[in-house]
Amino acid sequence: MIIINDLTKVYKLSKKQMLEQKTKKNMKKAVDQLSLTSKPGEIYGLLGPNGAGKTTALRCIATLLKPTQGKISVSGLDTVKDSEKVREKISFLTNEIKLDPQFSPKYMFNFFGRLHGQDEATIKRRREELFSYFGIKDFEDKKIEELSTGMKQKASIAVSLVHDPEVVIFDEPTNGLDIVTARSVTDYLRLLKEQGKTVIISTHIMSEAEKLCDRIGIIINGILVKEGTLPQILEQTQTDELEDAFFELYKQHNKEEA
C-alpha cells in the first residue's frame, strides 16, 4: 500500500540550469500537491509526458528523494523517517539505475540478496524462480556488459525483485525493449498483482496504460489532473480512447498554465 499525501517536490536550479530552461526562477516545482493511493493487488499507472514529474514522484516513494512538502507512507512506514525499512519492502526499477557491467547477473543477484539480509538458501530459491521465469539462465554467468539491452533489462528486473518485495515501483519498465521482452515484463507485473503486491508504474505509452493498469493517474506539469479506472477517465473526458482523453486534458491544463 502506498499513500501519497500532498506531495510537493521543489528543485533548486543552478544558474546553468536556469539558463538552460530559460527561466528566471531559481526553483522548479517538479511535483505539486500530489495525492494518490496505490493498493495491494492493483497496478497503478502514472501517465504523463516527459518532464511531468512521474520519475520524481516515484523516486520520492523509493526514498531516493525527500519530499519538500507532504508525506508518503509505504506499507505504513514513512519514507523519510523509516527510509531503510521502506527500502526493505520495495523494489524500484528505473533506466538510470544499472547493474555493475563487470559482474554476471548471478553475482549481482546474490550480492543484492545479501545486502537485503537474505540467507543463501532463500537467495538460491529466488534465483531459480526468477531466472527461469525471465529466461536468464542461459546467460547468468556472462558479464552484464556483454549482454544485449533486453537481457540487461531482464537481469535488472530479476535482481530488483530478489527480496520478494511487497511494493513494486517500475519507472517506464518496457522502455527500449522489443515486443517479446516487453510482453514478458508486463505479464510478470500482472503476476505480481495476482500475488497481491502493490504495483505502481510510470509510462507514456497509452496502450500499455490501457491494457495493464487498473487505475490511471494523469500527471501534467507536476499536477495530478485526473485519476480513475480507464472507463471512468473516458467517461469524464467524454472520449473513446485514452490517447484522446490525455490530449484533451493536456490542452486544458497547458492553457491554464499559459
Partner: peptide
C-alpha cells in the same frame, strides 16, 4: 565512475545505511 554508470544508485536502494 559508479555514479556515472548508475550502479551506485542501485546500492542506495538497498536497506542499509
Amino acid at each position: 565512475g559508479e555514479k556515472e554508470r548508475g550502479t551506485l544508485s542501485s546500492m542506495l536502494l538497498s536497506p542499509i545505511k
